[in-house]
């Protein structure tokens, strides 16, 4: 088995008090790894996830996807395989459905088709009625938005999910369904894995099979 994602001595390009927020971080993600990322507030967990998908400046270090160093020109492809879900999900104007399929207009996804039935099934598992898919995105609660953001990522069939406190605004019930959904997604593919940031001890044990703690400047 080869690692799906390797982060090699990654140092952030963002400074706090003259020092990089995180420096020389290395981690490997093997297929079916369920990596739980913990650390104090401000340790740079979100920044690390954002840096892994190149949304933030990187001072040094390399990232390998399937043993290939990620090159600038391949970043759209890489980001279609490694999808980052921010703490506060962003939805576009329009219905839930138009949000779920919004990424298909990008060139990188042009050969994929949007499977509405699959998405309906997933929404049903979260306890949403059939009309939910037509609901305007701006009427969704924070928790509902997090679910839609997850389904929007899953429908693009990624290899890796980077989840930043994805259940923070969900009630316990929906949070469990969320965990189940992600865990069964990992099991049902050959190369799937995720990094999950959480502050809840219970969740760490439910979703994790590998743990990484981001220290406050070691």
């Amino acid at each position: 088995m080869i690692p799906v994602l390797q982060v090699n001595h990654l140092t952030s390009g963002i400074l706090k008090d003259g020092l990089p927020i995180f420096s020389s971080i290395s981690l490997d993600l093997m297929p079916h790894d369920q990596l739980v990322l913990t650390g104090d507030s401000g340790a740079g967990k979100s920044l690390l996830l954002r840096s892994i998908v190149f949304l933030e400046p990187i001072a040094s270090g390399d990232i390998f996807f399937l043993e290939k160093k990620v090159a600038a020109a391949e970043i759209p492809f890489y980001r279609s395989r490694v999808i980052y879900l921010p703490q506060k999900p962003t939805l576009e104007e329009g219905s839930v459905e138009s949000n779920l399929k919004s990424a298909f207009k990008n060139k990188i996804h042009q050969n994929k088709t949007f499977d509405i039935n699959l998405n309906r099934e997933r929404l049903e598992r979260f306890g949403f009625g059939p009309s939910f898919i037509e609901k305007p995105a701006k009427l969704l609660s924070g928790g509902e938005a997090q679910i839609v953001a997850l389904l929007r990522a899953l429908t693009l069939d990624p290899a890796i999910l980077l989840l930043d406190e994805p259940t923070a605004s969900l009630d316990q019930n929906k949070a469990h369904v969320f965990e189940e959904e992600v865990l069964s997604w990992v099991k049902n593919g050959t190369q799937r894995s995720f990094i999950w940031v959480t502050h809840q001890k219970e969740q760490e044990n439910t979703v994790g099979n590998k743990f990484f703690r981001l220290g406050n400047s070691v």
């Binding site: 759209p76 492809f77 279609s80 999808i83 962003t90 990424a103 207009k105 990008n106 060139k107 990522a153």
Partner: peptide, 16 residues
């Protein structure tokens, strides 16, 4: 910025 980063996160090129 959040919309721009959303597009990028879902595989859009910077031009898109």
């Amino acid at each position: 910025r959040d919309q721009v980063e959303l597009s990028l996160s879902l595989g859009a090129t910077s031009w898109e």
